[in-house]
């Protein structure tokens, strides 16, 4: 008995709780969701209905809105945020710049707020008589308030601005710490060879930061595919379903409308499939040379 628990076997004791925990709270639900996706019914009265749920996806206008919205956020917001974060980090990496610490802290600060808290603040700032409309009218940029939250175009813009505000500084910190590992002599050599600042950025900085850019792109993509807190608290998914996301639709299907766990599970598998496909594409695109 004693021998059994020696060395390597005792190692299993250390990892046991975590293995059980992840199995119960991640792997089992994934299996359950897959089985659920072939069932239909109200609440817990479920029957196997084959591929009905999966077929329903293609004719469900709300699902299609949720999917389109999520991709709109993804395609506009993630690149915009990463470009801003890169620019900030390059500017702030210059040791001759004054107030670097101050700028860095200020730009990072949004990352400490809770998603719900900043969402409610943004909702009020962008409301019809909110501070943003007042500001734009005082500057005479607009003559009438914009219906930021009730217009389907502007509501999407507000969601995109909000997420960008919250996460740009967060991503910037990753790039800043990666930039500190780049040897300054590379830039000096480039300058001697007559490379412009833009060339230095595209030919040295970007390639050197490639792994970390890949990492932040993948985490941002997964994050955007799961977008929930902001949309629920800023627009509630409206007007109509103009800003609804896949996560919010899953929530509504399970807990807001008449509960349909089977179909909700089907929609949730779409997110899983998207995460896997998009991560694979990003790895392929970024890792082509290694």
């Amino acid at each position: 008995m004693r021998r059994l628990f020696r060395k390597n076997n005792i190692g299993w004791l250390f990892v046991l709780i975590s293995v059980i925990g992840v199995s119960i709270f991640y792997f089992y639900p994934m299996v359950d969701a897959l089985l659920l996706s072939f069932q239909s019914g109200m609440g817990s009265n479920l029957d196997y209905t084959g591929l009905d749920n999966w077929a329903r996806l293609f004719n469900d206008p709300t699902f299609i809105s949720a999917l389109t919205n999520t991709f709109t956020y993804l395609i506009i917001q993630v690149p915009m945020m990463i470009i801003f974060a890169l620019i900030f980090s390059v500017l702030l990496n210059d040791p001759t710049l004054k107030f670097r610490g101050l700028f860095r802290t200020a730009i990072f600060l949004p990352a400490v707020t809770s998603l719900v808290a900043y969402s409610v603040i943004f909702k009020y700032m962008f409301s019809g008589n909110g501070i943003v409309n007042q500001f734009l009218m005082n500057l005479a940029i607009i003559s009438e308030p914009i219906n930021f939250l009730t217009d389907s175009f502007w509501a999407k813009i507000v969601i995109i601005l909000a997420i960008t505000w919250r996460w740009t500084g967060y991503n910037m910190i990753f790039y800043l710490s990666a930039l500190q590992n780049i040897d300054n002599s590379i830039y000096e050599a480039a300058r001697i060879d007559g490379a412009s600042i833009f060339q230095q950025f595209t030919k040295i900085t970007i390639p050197m930061l490639k792994p970390i850019i890949l990492f932040t792109t993948i985490t941002s993509t997964i994050g955007t595919l799961q977008l929930f807190d902001e949309v629920v608290n800023i627009t509630g998914g409206g007007p109509g379903n103009a800003t609804i996301t896949i996560s919010q639709y899953i929530y509504n299907l399970s807990f807001e409308y008449t509960p349909n766990f089977g179909y909700a599970a089907t929609v949730s598998y779409v997110i899983v499939i998207l995460v896997v496909i998009l991560s694979a594409i990003q790895f392929k695109v970024a890792g082509d040379k290694e």
Partner: peptide, 15 residues
């Protein structure tokens, strides 16, 4: 780590 929370929320609730 790749599993989005929204996709396991319903089974967890049932559990």
């Amino acid at each position: 780590m790749m599993i989005p929370f929204a996709s396991i929320m319903v089974p967890l609730y049932r559990l």
